[in-house]
Amino acid sequence: MPLEFWLLFAPACFAINIYPGPNNILALGNGARFGFGHAFRAALGRLPAFAVMIGLVAVGLGVVLSASETFFTALKWIGAAYLVWLGVKMLRAPVDMSALTAIGRREPVSRLAGREFFVAATNPKAIVTFTAFFPQFLVPGGDYVWQISLMGAAFIVFEAIAIALYAYGGSRVGALAGTANRMRWVNRISGGALVAAGVVLALARRPQPV
């Protein structure tokens, strides 16, 4: 891909990565509750889901999701229900300030990473975004699969940067919260945002063919 394509693709792609979607909200909340390192490692669990989606787009299966009302709707409702469940769980989570320093009392990274993976995998808008976004930067006549793969690799790198920013931001929120009462508000805001994200996902319409 020519340099001018990358100069257009990189900022546009990073804008998508940094958007406060469900996964980034989850990383923010985990950062506030468990600290940067724990939240960052957990949030890496979303990357395999995105990598699989990018692979599907590379072989053209993203078109199936865009065209299939049944598939899109089923995946949408599963993802929406899971986000609402996570949000309610966070709203009701007990506040334990020692979780920020006592590693043994934190939720295991593997469990949090599994949530990150499931949230990413059940969000059909992600693969539809890849299907609609990546082709805008394809060089006509080039190797389609190779170009998608390069853009996908760049997306994963930008996603890791976004993860670090949200996990760090959450950890700073947790540090500034200071008291159990303030941390309850952090949980309420994060949980409420996840519930809202679930509702938005449930109301999402299938993209119409152009």
Rank of each mutant, 00 (worst) to 15 (best):
A120V: 12
D96V: 13
M151G: 04
A167P: 12
V64C: 04
V119E: 09
G60Q: 06
M97W: 05
L165N: 01
Y144H: 14
V109I: 15
K89N: 10
R182I: 00
A113M: 07
W77K: 01
M97Y: 04
G114H: 10
Y166P: 06
W85D: 01
A160T: 13
S149Y: 03
N181M: 12
K89V: 09
V63Q: 13
K89Q: 13
E116V: 03
R184D: 08
W77P: 00
Q147F: 07
G142F: 05
V95T: 13
Y144Q: 12
V145T: 08
L75R: 10
I148S: 01
L112W: 05
A175R: 15
L91D: 02
G62D: 02
E116K: 04
A102V: 15
A167K: 03
Q147G: 06
Y166S: 08
I127R: 00
I103F: 11
A154K: 05
K76N: 09
G141Y: 11
G55L: 12
M151F: 14
V119S: 09
A132P: 00
T122F: 15
P140L: 11
V88C: 03
M90V: 13
A162I: 00
M183K: 03
A121L: 14
V95S: 07
F155Y: 11
Y144K: 12
V173W: 12
L86R: 04
E69V: 15
E107H: 13
E69W: 11
A153N: 01
T179A: 15
F155S: 02
F134V: 11
S98L: 11
V88T: 02
G174I: 08
A51C: 03
T70G: 01
V139L: 06
R92V: 07
F72V: 01
I78Q: 01
V95N: 07
G174C: 09
P140Y: 13
V63N: 06
F134K: 05
A51H: 05
V109H: 07
M183R: 08
V84E: 03
R105W: 00
G174N: 08
L61E: 14
G79M: 06
V139R: 00
V119D: 08
Y168R: 15
V64Q: 13
D96E: 14
G62Q: 03
L112R: 10
V95A: 06
I78A: 13
I54G: 09
G104I: 03
T131I: 02
P140K: 09
A120M: 12
G169Q: 03
A167H: 08
V59E: 00
I148H: 04
L61S: 13
P140D: 14
L100C: 07
F117M: 12
E159Y: 00
R184A: 11
E116H: 15
F134E: 07
S149M: 12
L86H: 08
A99N: 08
S110W: 15
L61C: 06
